[in-house]
Design a protein around this nucleic acid. Structure first.
Length: 434
DNA sequence: TCTGGGGTCCTAGGACCC
DNA sequence: TCTGGGGTCCTAGGACCC
């Protein structure tokens, strides 16, 4: 069996731990720039507020229903998440941390009443962190997901499922008829791997519930929807197709992108933003021990607003893969100059690092290189920079960016004169849509 | 005025090669 | 009437996840 432990309304629950006055009130946590709702309390959901709904559409609830809106505090959520994951790991021998608020735990070989065990772990998480969780148990990941949905809905929406299933639902320890009844009561759109698009198409094909999907022919599903949905059907039928991943692979790309609070209209502002994104992306890159072979920078106007629209992006390949903030910031600065266009309200920009490779292999190659000394020195410099920024806060030490030597809150490293690692001749022509 | 920020996987089609 | 048949690599686009 596999268990899925999932924190309820995670960001809101974290906030409530530190502000108990929020209990019982409708609460939302807002995204960057307070743009839209990315977490909702049960009371906020009851108001009809949906995931990702823009703030300006729901702000009137502040007056009419005492809605409380909070700006996201991701360092706090990460901290609470770490503690929950440690406690959840006690449920079984192998854990896969799937996202900031949920993990799978493999229960193969665990003896005794699994639901009972799950209830004790859930109680411990609630007691020690203050965050309520739902636990679902099933024979596959997809079934565990459904069980988790049942556990939460049975609590939140009385009448949807039997009351005993609230908080902890074990679909593995159940008579087939009882399980079928639960799947029949579950909309096909609730199945993991079935999004809005597929749900619509499945309904048109006469498949309305999780039970209908379980009873469908995998071959037919594959022909029409592809191998991914076929796997989902087989998982519903009890065959494990999606393995537990307890040591997630290094990321294949690393992105840092943001919408701007105010439209960006100058090259200096765009350069500064892209330099900041490249700096952050470089930290993530080094944290997973990789080097980047290419940097992509993009910017575009708002797709939601009238007026002239523009979208520009540029890929810059590196001569040799790098994790050096100064080189990445330098490339981002070059890209900023190339993709900037006068006369547009830029709404968003970002940096993506691609073509990632393990740093160890790269270091090995560099040892054969003639600038071995400076390479070792550069790596120590980057390590020192990460260390300072972790201890004293983001942006304490930054790399100077091309064009704008804006002072950070601490010190700014002088950009050295050195041969650029990137090759401008190879840089792809910006993709421009005006 | 005001609409998040990350990721993954699969497929189809074109270029190119032998 | 009727153009060879595979193979690989790359990219764009579409679907999904939290």
């Amino acid at each position: 069996m596999i268990a899925l432990i999932d924190a309820s309304n995670f960001y809101v629950s974290c906030e409530r731990v530190f502000s108990p006055r929020l209990q019982g009130l409708p609460v939302v946590v807002l995204s960057n720039n307070d743009g839209c709702a990315i977490a909702r309390s049960d009371e906020a959901k009851a108001l009809g507020i949906s995931m990702g709904q823009p703030w300006y559409q729901i702000r009137h609830f502040q007056q009419t229903h005492n809605l409380v809106a909070l700006s996201a505090n991701f360092p706090l959520y990460g901290d609470v998440s770490d503690r929950i994951m440690t406690l959840a790991a006690g449920l079984g021998p192998t854990q896969e941390i799937y996202s900031i608020d949920e993990c799978f735990v493999l229960l193969d070989g665990v003896r005794g009443d699994l639901a009972d065990r799950a209830r004790r772990v859930r109680a411990r998480i609630l007691q020690w962190t203050g965050v309520p969780c739902g636990v679902g148990i099933g024979s596959t990941k997809t079934m565990a997901k459904i069980a988790n949905h049942v556990a939460k809905a049975a609590h939140r929406k009385p009448g949807s499922y039997a009351r005993e299933l609230a908080h902890v639902c074990d679909l593995g320890n159940m008579q087939p008829a009882e399980r079928a009844e639960i799947l029949t009561a579950t909309d096909v759109g609730e199945v993991w791997g079935v999004g809005r698009r597929y749900a619509m198409q499945l309904r048109e094909a006469g498949i309305y519930t999780a039970h209908d999907l379980t009873a469908s022919d995998p071959a037919i599903i594959r022909r029409r929807w592809g191998v991914v949905l076929e796997r989902t059907v087989r998982e519903l039928q009890g065959f494990r197709c999606i393995g537990l991943d307890d040591a997630p692979a290094a990321k294949q790309q690393i992105a840092c992108t943001r919408s701007f609070g105010h439209p960006v209209q100058t090259l200096a502002a765009l350069t500064e933003a892209l330099a900041a994104f490249a700096t952050r992306a470089a930290e993530k890159l080094r944290a997973q021990g990789s080097n980047a072979g290419q940097l992509l920078a993009f910017t575009h106007t708002s797709p939601f607003r009238e007026g002239p629209s523009y979208s520009g992006s540029l890929v810059i390949p590196f001569r040799r893969p790098t994790a050096d903030t100064r080189e990445l910031v330098g490339a981002a600065g070059l890209a900023a100059h190339r993709i900037f266009r006068e006369g547009f309200d830029l709404a968003k920009a970002g940096v993506m690092l691609m073509d990632l490779s393990p740093a160890s292999r790269e270091q090995h190659e560099l040892q054969l290189d003639d600038d071995r000394y400076s390479t070792a020195r550069d790596q120590r410099l980057m390590a020192a920079m990460d260390c300072l920024n972790e201890r004293y806060g983001k942006g304490t030490v930054q790399s100077g960016s091309v064009g704008t030597a804006k002072q950070g809150k601490g010190w700014t490293m002088r950009q050295e004169r050195r041969t650029p690692n990137y090759t401008t001749e190879w840089a792809q022509i910006p993709v421009v849509r005006a």
